[in-house]
């Protein structure tokens, strides 16, 4: 069991680091998805450990939510791209200080 969770923490952390270092908004977003996936792994593993299905339901909800989130997120990225011709998150820094 521990190894599943450890894997999940690793994937989660990698995803988090990805958010910090990638500049392409789409990849950043993919990294967030990686984090969600890592969470799902944890949920599923814990479900097995505790012997109830709540974890699996949680993972299911996460997938649904992720789908909705991706729709919105990609729409936002596209609309930004239309205006700025870039998907680099570093270029979106008019708002600061």
């Amino acid at each position: 069991m521990t190894e599943y969770i450890t894997l999940s923490t690793l994937l989660f952390s990698i995803g988090a680091v990805g958010v910090l270092v990638r500049r392409n908004a789409i990849i950043v977003f993919m990294c967030v998805e990686l984090m969600l996936n890592a969470t799902n792994l944890a949920f599923v593993s814990f479900a097995r450990q505790h012997g109830n299905l709540d974890g699996q339901v949680a993972a299911f909800f996460v997938m649904v939510v992720a789908a909705a989130e991706v729709t919105i997120g990609l729409a936002i990225i596209v609309s930004i791209y239309r205006t700025r011709r870039t998907t680099s998150v570093d270029d979106a820094n008019l708002l600061k200080a």
Binding site: A16, V19, A25, V28, F29, V32, M35, E69, I72, G73, I76, I77, S79, I80, T83, V89, A92, N93, L94, L95
Partner: peptide
């Protein structure tokens, strides 16, 4: 739009 992108990315994070 920038606000939207930032809010979205960080919110999801």
């Amino acid at each position: 739009q920038e606000a939207s992108l930032k809010y979205f990315l960080l919110g999801a994070f």
